[in-house]
């Protein structure tokens, strides 16, 4: 009786641990995939303007390292990439007011490139997956 209880406790614990570990490795595997695919999307579609180090260009093109801005505007990033951006914004305390052209990317590519951006150039904001991007794209203004 006593032993079986201990056994049950141990096995529950170990299953839970296994689950947590496998979940974690799944998440990090998914993250790695998104990130490395996102790097390629970035190089072909974003780098010309924003630079290989995400530093932008003088007062014309903003840098991509303003984590506070990226966090605050997380749900509108997909729309900005897909349909372009207009109007005044403040990045790192500096004003920008140019047009960003639209990039015809699939939701998956958008999720990958946001994940790449959000975890490069000093940002550490975790993964943005395709489901989130698809949901965000339904609410574009």
């Amino acid at each position: 009786m006593k032993y079986s209880r201990i056994f049950a406790a141990i096995s529950t614990l170990s299953i839970a641990t296994l689950l947590i570990v496998s979940c974690e490795s799944n998440t990090s595997l998914e993250f790695k995939r998104y990130y490395s695919e996102g790097a390629e999307v970035y190089q072909t579609r974003c780098q010309n303007c924003h630079g290989n180090d995400g530093a932008g260009l003088s007062a014309l093109i903003p840098a991509l390292n303003d984590s506070t801005f990226l966090k605050k505007n997380k749900s509108s990033l997909a729309c900005a990439i897909r349909y372009g951006m207009k109007g005044a914004i403040t990045i790192n305390g500096k004003a920008y007011n140019e047009n960003m052209p639209a990039a015809e990317l699939a939701p998956m590519e958008i999720a990958q490139v946001i994940t790449y951006m959000n975890n490069s150039f000093g940002n550490q904001l975790g993964i943005v997956n395709m489901d989130e991007v698809e949901a965000d794209l339904k609410n574009c203004k």
């Binding site: 780098q47 010309n48 303007c49 630079g51 260009l57 014309l60 093109i61 047009n99 052209p101």
Partner: peptide
């Protein structure tokens, strides 16, 4: 000035 492709890289 409105060039979306290679110009920013050239300007840089």
């Amino acid at each position: 000035t409105t060039c979306p492709s290679i110009c920013p890289q050239m300007a840089r």
